[in-house]
Design a protein around this nucleic acid. Sequence first.
DNA 1: AGATTAGTTCCAAGAAAGTCGAACTGTGAT
DNA 2: ATCACAGTTCGACTTTCTTGGAACTAATCT
Lengths: 119, 119
Amino acid sequence: MAATRMLPHPDAHDVHLTDVLFALSDPARLDLVRLIAQDGPQTVAQCQGLEPGTPKSTLSHHLKTLREAGVVRNVPSGRQRTISLRRDDLDGRFPGLLDAVLGTAGDADLADSGRGQQS
Amino acid sequence: MAATRMLPHPDAHDVHLTDVLFALSDPARLDLVRLIAQDGPQTVAQCQGLEPGTPKSTLSHHLKTLREAGVVRNVPSGRQRTISLRRDDLDGRFPGLLDAVLGTAGDADLADSGRGQQS
DNA sequence: AGATTAGTTCCAAGAAAGTCGAACTGTGAT
DNA sequence: ATCACAGTTCGACTTTCTTGGAACTAATCT
């Protein structure tokens, strides 16, 4: 069984919006996507750098969620893996979505644009 | 105690991207948002029409999630309530996000744009 | 071959969400 | 006042997610 190597990825047209939104709705995963979007493909070890204390299994789980949702591609390269953003696929299927999500600075702030109106 | 009337809404600058994404990541809630975006403000009873069998409490729960995330506004009008999309607030905070999400037909398909390529 | 490294998978426990009936509250009509 | 109506809230149950340790697998290095 030489198989744990190549992980399954959903075909582009099988990527569901709700799954993508869910995958991106977790702060840790959103940060991962931001990292990959900015700095390009990363190894898992490099992803670790985002939140140093996180156990490997937890990180791997988040990457799995992103991969199964079709957000990220996970490809073996040497004895490590390269995590890359499936930007073309996502843009093709949900135009503008990724840009809108990534366009937001860090979620926390970017406020201060003035008004503090409420209902 | 005259209070269960006016429900709490997050202030525009207190709306978090991850909460919005999460709120939209559920098929039922996404359908609700699509309905309101297309047909304008709706009463809860009108929202019921989307999935007729759904109990009131379940629908109310979804509306609560959307409201607390800042996606929807829930305002009493007579003895019913008007559910409306907080489009301005969302566009202000996450430009392009709502359009990208709503731009997608029905999630299920809209594929067929050709290629069936995979990794 | 054996040891190291890079990650995934397995499993269990705790936390959070979804679902829905029943009770509750405010509003309008009789 | 009383009754019906439109929705929300409460409480219990079930399911799914998250988290992290331990075991596992594949690839490289010596």
